[in-house]
């Protein structure tokens, strides 16, 4: 066993990070509206790093994890994972994420199956907690992938999704530790208060476990490691909730952007749980 990240994966992570740069999603100050953070320019910059080819369908999913972590840190659009791993936006429970313009959709099937489908109704934007461009639509199932191909797609998707969840949590914790060190109350930084330290320590534990789980998925033979994905989603949600608690009211103001981690974590967790249920 080795617990250090290889130079090759580090380099790939760096190239993904510089492709993301200081990317920000379209602002959505009016919450409760419909919004889609899909960004073609970002997708092109990522494509130039070899984003999809390097990992999709490959036996070695290191780049999926290295890149997924970076996407999570930046709260980048989830379609970057769905389209690279599954070949199309994801559709489940009568919805597709980033599905407004989709010609084809990736549909999870029982026992780890995967099919491509096409929309048969006009997509209806669904106002949603998160800006993942969710639409309601009917889909007709087209060709089902061979089990081996479906397996490879779900392995890649799971690895990148686990890493994305870990990336969200990693960055939310970094921002929170930074805040706790600089925010002063009762004559000193709140980072010195035992209750704040306990909360941050729990978050750190979760973040480390999430990151290790993400890297462990490189060598995981299962197509959909459902228990890990379900735990990772719930755990990521807890870390982002703790991040808000330690930030206090400043995190509640939209301008700090912390809310993006909190909302995306819950949305990713819910989509992931829906996929796990559909492929059970």
């Amino acid at each position: 066993m080795r617990f250090d990240v290889s130079d090759e994966h580090r380099l790939f992570a760096d190239s993904v990070r510089s492709a993301i740069g200081d990317w920000e999603p379209p602002r959505d100050p009016d919450l409760g509206g419909w919004h889609d953070d899909r960004d073609d320019a970002l997708a092109e910059r990522l494509a130039a790093t070899g984003w999809a080819e390097l990992w999709a369908g490959s036996d070695l999913l290191g780049p999926a994890v290295a890149g997924g972590l970076e996407l999570g840190r930046a709260v980048a659009p989830a379609c970057l994972i769905d389209e690279a791993a599954l070949g199309a936006p994801l559709a489940v429970e009568g919805r597709a994420r980033h599905g407004l313009q989709a010609k084809s959709l990736a549909l999870p099937l029982r026992r780890g199956g995967l099919a491509l489908g096409t929309p048969t109704s006009d997509p209806q934007p669904e106002l949603s907690l998160d800006g993942s461009g969710t639409v309601l639509l009917d889909v007709s199932i087209g060709g089902e992938l061979e089990p081996v191909a479906a397996h490879a797609c779900w392995s890649a998707w799971s690895a990148a999704t686990l890493a994305y969840l870990a990336g969200l949590a990693v960055r939310a914790l970094e921002l929170t530790v930074e805040h706790a060190r600089t925010r002063e109350q009762f004559g000193g930084p709140i980072a010195a208060i035992p209750a704040v330290q306990s909360r941050l320590a729990d978050a750190a534990l979760a973040v480390d476990a999430l990151t290790l789980l993400a890297w462990s998925s490189i060598s995981d033979e299962r197509s959909l490691p459902a228990p890990e994905l379900l735990w990772a989603g719930a755990s990521c949600c807890e870390v982002t909730a703790s991040a808000h608690q330690v930030h206090g009211a400043i995190g509640f103001a939209l301008e700090t952007g912390l809310h993006r981690y909190y909302r995306r974590a819950r949305a990713m967790h819910t989509w992931t749980a829906a996929v796990c249920a559909a492929t059970h």
């Binding site: 409760g32 489940v92 429970e93 919805r95 669904e126 106002l127 907690l129 969710t134 819910t270 749980a273």
Partner: peptide
């Protein structure tokens, strides 16, 4: 509720879209 539980700010959604909010 699953994915429908994420709906937010839409009176026509289940639970009037209150859960996301």
């Amino acid at each position: 509720l699953g994915l429908e539980g994420l709906s937010d700010g839409d009176l026509t959604a289940p639970l009037e879209g209150r859960v996301g909010g």
